[in-house]
Amino acid sequence: MSELDAKERNDLSSKQFAFPKERKEPLEDASHVRNAIARFDQVKGVSDDERDEAWKRIKAAAKKFGVEVSEKSWRELGKS
Results as ranks from 00 to 15, higher is better:
residue 45 G to Q: 09
residue 24 K to E: 13
residue 35 N to Q: 12
residue 77 L to S: 09
residue 59 K to S: 13
residue 20 P to A: 05
residue 24 K to Y: 07
residue 63 K to M: 02
residue 16 Q to V: 00
residue 48 D to L: 12
residue 32 H to G: 11
residue 70 S to L: 07
residue 41 D to A: 11
residue 56 K to C: 05
residue 78 G to Y: 02
residue 21 K to A: 13
residue 26 P to Y: 00
residue 13 S to Q: 12
residue 50 E to L: 01
residue 33 V to D: 03
residue 79 K to V: 12
residue 1 M to T: 00
residue 41 D to W: 11
residue 37 I to F: 01
residue 23 R to V: 03
residue 40 F to A: 06
residue 75 R to G: 07
residue 9 R to F: 14
residue 49 D to L: 11
residue 69 V to C: 03
residue 79 K to R: 15
residue 19 F to H: 07
residue 47 S to K: 09
residue 48 D to A: 14
residue 10 N to H: 12
residue 66 G to Q: 09
residue 32 H to Q: 12
residue 76 E to W: 06
residue 60 A to I: 08
residue 37 I to C: 01
residue 58 I to F: 05
residue 5 D to V: 14
residue 7 K to W: 07
residue 30 A to K: 15
residue 15 K to L: 09
residue 69 V to A: 04
residue 75 R to S: 06
residue 42 Q to S: 13
residue 17 F to Q: 02
residue 72 K to H: 10
residue 59 K to E: 08
residue 32 H to Y: 05
residue 71 E to M: 10
residue 62 A to I: 05
residue 30 A to V: 10
residue 60 A to N: 11
residue 16 Q to A: 14
residue 4 L to A: 09
residue 35 N to A: 14
residue 33 V to T: 11
residue 2 S to R: 15
residue 66 G to V: 14
residue 66 G to F: 11
residue 38 A to K: 15
residue 31 S to T: 10
residue 39 R to G: 03
residue 19 F to E: 03
residue 75 R to W: 03
residue 61 A to H: 00
residue 33 V to A: 06
residue 57 R to L: 07
residue 1 M to I: 00
residue 55 W to V: 09
residue 68 E to D: 14
